[in-house]
Design a protein around this nucleic acid. Structure first.
Lengths: 211, 211
DNA sequence: CCTGTTCTATGACTTTTGTCACATAAAAAG
DNA sequence: CTTTTTATGTGACAAAAGTCATAGAACAGG
């Protein structure tokens, strides 16, 4: 790991903090599909994303995975930052959707850095705030919107995060992430295709123009 | 406001912090139904609940109110604590369901106290963590559960928070908080009554035994 | 190529939830 | 003690979403 890598993705971090990160943390790499974090697992470190893309899910007891939001380079998992004091387990699952590199920082440094580095303090609070707001938006959608709107929103988020108008997922996979069923998603996508919003291919959806 | 009042509800706060709170904050009281916070409003202070009970909602653009969680004495609104730096507006609405007293602390003290008082620092992080987890549980319910289960869970939370097995709400009001319709709630409650789980009265639901 | 597997399409049906209409019951107002 | 208002109960129906069954299309591996 180089100083430049950290500074590139976390430009607000002051020099002393960058040094400490260099000294005390390690790089971990995950391949597409790997889980960075499992439901029920104990946290040992905070992970800062420096490359790739991560999807964060909430799981229920029957193993259903509900997609909540993306983590991009320059971001971090909010939950892992705060479980420092009480040794808590993860309430969420996170999965790499591109090959991903993270900086893993042992939780023992959290409290110390919070008071020592203003930039770290602001980063942690901002991480919490932004993840909280993502959750609120997620709640909006499942509480107030019907499946067709949720699907469109899902495709839009996906497109923005992957910087691609082609979504490499089967209808089955999309259905699971929205906690719906394959047939429902197939039908809604078909309707969207007829409206010229998408084009459907095997294992992928090409986005033409969303409202 | 007395030192004792603060120490009673926030026993972890150290003496210096209690003094600062006494010096720099004011008590505000709200009657049943009053809004402590409106969607779109600017934050000017953080509010610590010392008496009463507050419900926190997410609103959509059509004015639907979706109930998320309760705030009890000893707790605080997570969002208001973190919007200190960037002057952000509220993403939520909070309403008193009992006559409520809060300590209103101007946001200008947030950063200073975070580094000065360990107990404040832990309180803020713990507030964030616990509200985050409440939101995750909320998401579980709307994503994975059907209305009958959500209704039972709603009644259970209500009962725990109000320390009463009688819920003083009309079917209409319950329906609005679950973003459902009056008829659906009436029918589900009727079914629950037949199963001996509740007894129905005008403008109230008496909880007998929930699963 | 052929063959088995996976993915998608779609009709028919069920269940759940939401809506409309109207009846009845309970409380409030006069 | 009426009248009016508000809350609840319920049947009938509509719409959305989930399930089942089945067929065909696309691909993968020999």
């Amino acid at each position: 790991m180089s100083t430049a890598t950290i500074m590139q993705h976390f430009p607000t971090f002051e020099a002393g903090l960058v040094d400490e990160i260099m000294k005390n943390s390690e790089i971990r790499t995950f391949r597409v599909g790997d889980q960075l974090m499992r439901t029920g697992q104990y946290f040992r470190s905070t992970m800062l994303i420096i490359d790739g893309l991560v999807k964060v899910y909430r799981e229920d007891d029957q193993g259903n995975e509900f997609f909540m939001y993306y983590l991009r380079p320059g971001q971090a998992c909010a939950l892992s930052m705060i479980c420092a004091t009480r040794q808590e387990t993860s309430e969420i699952m996170a999965k790499a959707v591109k090959d991903t590199e993270v900086i893993a920082i042992p939780l023992t440094f959290m409290d110390e850095w919070m008071s020592k580095y203003k930039s770290w303090y602001h980063f942690v609070l901002e991480t919490y705030r932004s993840r909280f707001e993502e959750l609120l938006v997620t709640i909006d959608h499942i509480a107030f919107r019907a499946m067709d709107e949720r699907l469109e929103f899902y495709l839009k988020k996906h497109m923005e995060s992957l910087h691609s108008n082609i979504i490499q997922l089967s209808h089955q996979e999309i259905a699971e992430e929205l906690n719906s069923s394959r047939e429902v998603i197939s039908r809604l996508l078909k309707k969207m295709e007829q409206l010229g919003k998408v084009r459907l291919h095997r294992n992928s959806v090409e986005i033409i123009k969303l409202s």
